[in-house]
Design a protein around this nucleic acid. Structure first.
Lengths: 247, 247
DNA sequence: CGTTCCATTGACGAAGCTCAAAAAAAGTGG
DNA sequence: CCACTTTTTTTGAGCTTCGTCAATGGAACG
């Protein structure tokens, strides 16, 4: 059975047969420990994963050892889709916490794309949404200060974590070291630390270990007003009108 | 008829019926002048576009006026797909040169996704490839110097321009102002200028107006050795094995 | 032929990086 | 549960890259 936070029918209502296919993914569950590399950049792409529980990072490595975390995945996310277009994976998937993933083979994805157009459309649109998120992140890295970036990240992640059911109304745990935060935001760990300290002393945020409490969300949002996306309603989505789009 | 540089069957061989659908896209061609805004961020999403001729940029705007160019599109590219997941477009499409685009309606895309699984799979994988490119760009912005970034961009764009048939073996025209280059690479126009001058004087590159000549491609590649993707063969792609994947 | 856009350059300032070290926390084997 | 190691956070000092502001000349364009 799919967890309550699954988002497969976010874009397209599914038939019951299609829902069964999606539920079938969860029949093979794999537990992975924190820090475990689920798939390394360069590995053969044998399929993708559905993230049932836990947090997973997706990152790109540079030859000199630096790396860029490109996405922090939460329960309900699909992992590894970009690499479907490559022979060798272009991203490393690493468990940030103990996690449960459900492997889905290339063949299963291929069959789905051929035989389940509604499900395929859902995955297609969900991938486009990920592209929008990447574009947004790109604009953060390219055009904003460290403080804006960190605040924007906290707010965005908090929203997503709430949707995924892993955050309280005003607080949540972020299983990322400051080093990793830096790799995500394009900053050094030292500068992440200084910026977080500055945030602490502003009184808008409170930290105890990995637990982050957003004391004044409105105040934080004001800080990112300049860099907020102009249009990004996350609650309403286009439907592709088509004669056969209702089950 | 599709231009020779179309890449729709890069991932999946198409049936002749599907090829006809793709060719049908080019039946409605729209000419747009340089600087014309094809679609502005926030506009209703009525469809996508196939870029038949010319260069188009895709950018994200921040409220304070700064903007981030997230992609420079070349002939043969599909434009506007990410926004299919949104009601209001999340990206601005602007013609960098005089261009010819072919509008494709939401309904046509919806029909295609429902009725032409092979074509849909091609679009799906091509979108995943775009995600990989975005991830790569993210790592450039997050973890590299201005010089590395500019050189990496020149090499990457030159490759793509050659594939699209708009570049010679060692030179091509880049219809971007230094301001736009800055918006693409997360730098100020002033710093782009200084860095380009530095490149000039290194003798690896020669510029006359928009015409750029890569004098020593191997030397340039060496400069980006540290930031080159570890795995990124652009000439071999995964096939999703499936009983029905051969026409 | 003036107006506007674009490239170029200089002087200066600031955000963020490097190096280094110490304190705190987390993991580990017995 | 304790000693020990390793990782992570925190802080300081100095430096570099890149940004800001401002001005000039040249090219493009109506």
């Amino acid at each position: 059975m799919l967890p309550p936070y699954h988002r497969l029918d976010e874009f397209v209502p599914l038939t019951s047969a299609e829902t069964r296919i999606a539920e079938g993914w969860t029949s093979s569950q794999r537990s992975v420990k924190r820090h475990h590399i689920i798939r390394r950049e360069g590995d053969q792409v044998s399929g993708v994963f559905f993230l049932l529980k836990g947090w997973v990072s997706s990152s790109v490595m540079l030859r000199d050892g630096r790396r860029q975390i490109v996405k922090v995945h939460l329960p309900g996310d699909m992992l590894g889709f970009p690499s479907l277009s490559l022979v060798h994976a272009g991203e490393t998937l690493e468990a940030l916490t103990d996690a449960i993933i459900c492997p889905i083979s290339n063949a299963a994805i291929g069959k789905l794309l051929m035989d389940s157009p509604r499900l395929a459309t859902g995955l297609f649109l969900s991938s486009q949404k990920e592209r929008v998120a990447l574009m947004q992140n790109l604009s953060w890295l390219g055009a904003t200060s460290a403080l804006e970036r960190i605040v924007a990240f906290l707010l965005d992640l908090h929203d997503r974590a709430k949707s995924a059911g892993v955050a309280m109304e005003d607080r949540f745990e972020i299983p990322l070291t400051q080093q990793q935060l830096g790799e995500l935001l394009g900053l050094t760990a030292v500068h992440v630390n200084r910026t977080l300290k500055r945030l602490d002393s502003s009184g808008l945020v409170e930290r105890q270990k990995a637990l982050v409490r957003l004391i004044d969300i409105a105040g934080l949002q004001k800080m990112t007003a300049n860099i907020a996306p102009i249009f990004a309603e996350h609650d309403a989505w286009a439907r592709l009108e088509s004669p056969s789009s209702n089950p």
